[in-house]
C-alpha cells in the first residue's frame, strides 16, 4: 500500500496546469465580451426577428428564383448563381495557371533554397492580403462586374495554390529527373516528362479543393459589386426582405453542396 501511496503522490499535478489554462481562457472570453457594445433591445427582440425570418423563409420567391414572371431571366437567382459559378470556375482556372510558375519559384528542389524563400515570401503576401480589399482595389480597374470577381479570385488563389503546388513538387520522386538528365533532356523536357506527369494529379486535386473555397468567395465578392449573387443578397439584407434573402440562401446552399460533392467525387477519382 505504501508504495502505491508514494506513487500517487509523485503523480504530476496536471490539474493545476489545466485549471490555469481554463481560467485564463475564461477570463479572456469575459474580457472579449466586456468591451462589446451590445444592443440589448435587438437582443430582447430576437424572438420577433426569428418569426420574421421564418415567415420570409415560408414565402420563397419562386419567380425570382427561376427568373420568370415579372423577372427577366438575367435577374433571376438561377442566372446569378451561374454567374457566381462562372466567377469561381474561371477565377480558379486562372489562379491555377498563374500558380504553376509560382509553384516552381517556391520549390526548394527546382530553384534552390535562396530563390525559393523569395517565392515563398511573395506567396505569403498574396495569401494574407484580404480578398475583399483586393476586390475593392481591382474594382477601380475592371469595373463593377463579374470580371473583377474573376480577377480577384484568380490573383488571390495564387497564394494558396502556389504554396501547395510547390509542396507537391518538393514531395515528388526525384529519381526520374536523374534519368532524364542521363538521356540528355534539357530543363523544359525535364519539366514536361519528369515533373508534370508526377504532379498533375496532385495539382488537379488541390485546384478542385480550391474551387470549393472559391465558390463561397465568389458569393461574398458580389457584396461589394464583383458580380453574381452577392449584390442581390446585400440589397435584400439591407431591407431585411427575408423572402428574397431566403431564396438566395437556398441557391447558395444548393450550389455549394453540389460543387462540394462533385469536387470530392473527382478528387477521389484522382488518387
Amino acid at each position: 500500500m505504501r508504495a502505491a501511496e508514494l506513487a500517487l503522490k509523485r503523480k504530476p499535478k496536471r490539474w493545476v496546469i489545466n485549471l490555469v489554462f481554463v481560467g485564463a481562457t475564461v477570463a479572456a472570453m469575459v474580457y472579449s465580451f466586456a468591451g462589446s457594445t451590445i444592443n440589448w433591445t435587438r437582443v430582447r427582440t430576437i424572438g420577433i426577428s426569428l418569426r420574421v425570418m421564418m415567415e420570409g423563409f415560408a414565402d420563397l420567391q419562386w419567380d425570382f428564383f427561376f427568373g420568370t414572371g415579372i423577372f427577366r431571366f438575367e435577374e433571376g437567382v438561377i442566372y446569378l448563381t451561374l454567374v457566381t459559378l462562372a466567377v469561381a470556375f474561371i477565377g480558379t482556372f486562372m489562379g491555377a495557371v498563374l500558380a504553376i510558375p509560382f509553384g516552381f519559384l517556391a520549390s526548394h528542389n527546382i530553384v534552390g533554397k535562396r530563390v525559393a524563400r523569395i517565392g515563398e515570401a511573395i506567396l505569403v503576401i498574396i495569401r494574407v492580403f484580404p480578398e475583399i480589399v483586393l476586390a475593392l482595389i481591382l474594382l477601380k480597374g475592371f469595373g463593377m462586374n463579374a470580371l473583377t470577381g474573376v480577377m480577384t479570385i484568380g490573383i488571390h488563389s495564387i497564394g494558396m495554390l502556389g504554396k501547395l503546388f510547390a509542396e507537391a513538387i518538393d514531395n515528388m520522386d526525384k529519381s526520374p529527373l536523374e534519368a532524364l538528365d542521363a538521356v540528355g533532356a534539357n530543363a523544359w523536357q525535364k519539366i514536361r516528362y519528369g515533373i508534370i506527369p508526377q504532379v498533375a494529379a496532385d495539382v488537379s486535386s488541390i485546384t478542385l479543393y480550391r474551387l470549393d473555397i472559391n465558390v463561397r468567395s465568389a458569393t461574398v465578392l458580389g457584396i461589394i459589386g464583383a458580380g453574381g449573387l452577392g449584390a442581390s443578397l446585400i440589397l435584400a439584407a439591407d431591407s431585411w426582405s427575408w423572402n428574397i434573402l431566403g431564396t438566395i440562401l437556398l441557391a447558395i446552399v444548393i450550389m455549394v453542396l453540389t460543387v462540394d460533392a462533385i469536387s470530392s467525387y473527382l478528387r477521389g477519382k484522382l488518387v
Binding site: 520522386d173 529519381s175 526520374p176 536523374e178 534519368a179 532524364l180 538528365d181 542521363a182 538521356v183 540528355g184 533532356a185 534539357n186 523536357q189 516528362y193 519528369g194 506527369p197 508526377q198 498533375a200 494529379a201
Partner: peptide, 30 residues
C-alpha cells in the same frame, strides 16, 4: 553526349504515373 549513352539505375527511375510507352519515348527527347 548523354543521349548516346544509356543509363540504368538501381531504383529504375521511371515516372511511375506515366505510361510505359511514354517512359520509353523519353529516350528520344534529346
Amino acid at each position: 553526349l548523354r543521349r548516346s549513352i544509356g543509363m540504368i539505375f538501381q531504383s529504375f527511375n521511371l515516372v511511375k504515373r506515366m505510361s510505359v510507352y511514354n517512359n520509353v519515348l523519353t529516350g528520344r527527347v534529346a
